[in-house]
């Protein structure tokens, strides 16, 4: 496997408000290549919102988010194009087969053979020509993971990657993360499950704020 381009990210005092409601505030971290950041917190503590802010979808946050790509300079702005995004929704079109879904997301520079490789990696190769509507929830999640593997993104942002997956599936995610960090990729993950990736990992916990 080739090493990935570098992407590091630094957040300083990042907060998000929706109108007069504060969703979260005071998020500080620095994430280096080949490292993993796990965001924990109860339901409704703003994990998904934080991921969307880091992912560059929202422009109305406060604080500072800087990125560092191949050069050593930290820049402000959206990391768009460098992110492998896995949200709650799997981005699957029901009418298309598993193979066609993956082909749609295949980057221009990547050869078609990669599709078979990633299907094998997440163990859905037997479903190759099945229409996606017939997939189970776990198989859909595996298909979404396969889509993630297609791109050569230095930064992964995963929202509950193990949702709908069995123990074996969770092990698969840990293995994929290990391979990703081995190629100097980094990842930011929101998760309830005790993922134990084999890489330097730091944690952030979002508390639903109560006045002491």
């Amino acid at each position: 496997m080739h090493p990935l381009p570098i992407c590091a990210i630094r957040c300083q005092n990042v907060g998000l408000s929706r109108g007069s409601t504060s969703v979260f505030m005071g998020v500080n971290f620095e994430l280096h290549p080949a490292n993993i950041l796990i965001i924990q917190g109860e339901n409704g503590s703003g994990k998904t919102s934080l991921l969307r802010v880091i992912g560059g979808f929202s422009q109305s946050f406060s604080g500072m988010i800087q990125h560092c790509f191949d050069t050593k300079n930290w820049i402000n702005g959206s990391p768009t194009g460098n992110i492998g995004w896995l949200g709650h929704a799997n981005a699957i079109k029901d009418e298309l087969t598993v193979f066609e879904n993956l082909k749609f997301w295949l980057p221009k520079a990547v050869p078609k053979e990669k599709i078979d490789l990633v299907m094998e990696k997440v163990q859905i190769k037997t479903l190759r020509h099945q229409r996606s509507y017939s997939l189970s929830a776990g198989e859909r999640r595996r298909l979404a993971l396969a889509r993630l593997l297609l791109g050569r993104h230095p930064l992964w942002i995963l929202d509950e990657p193990s949702a709908n997956l069995d123990i074996e599936g969770r092990k698969l995610i840990e293995q994929l993360l290990a391979e990703h960090t081995a190629r100097r990729g980094s990842a930011i993950i929101a998760s309830h499950d005790r993922l134990r990736p084999d890489a330097p990992t730091s944690y952030i916990k979002l508390h639903t704020g109560h006045r002491a």
Partner: peptide, 10 residues
């Protein structure tokens, strides 16, 4: 008062 994050830990 909305959620706040704790310091990053390893």
């Amino acid at each position: 008062i909305g959620s706040s994050a704790s310091v990053q830990t390893t």
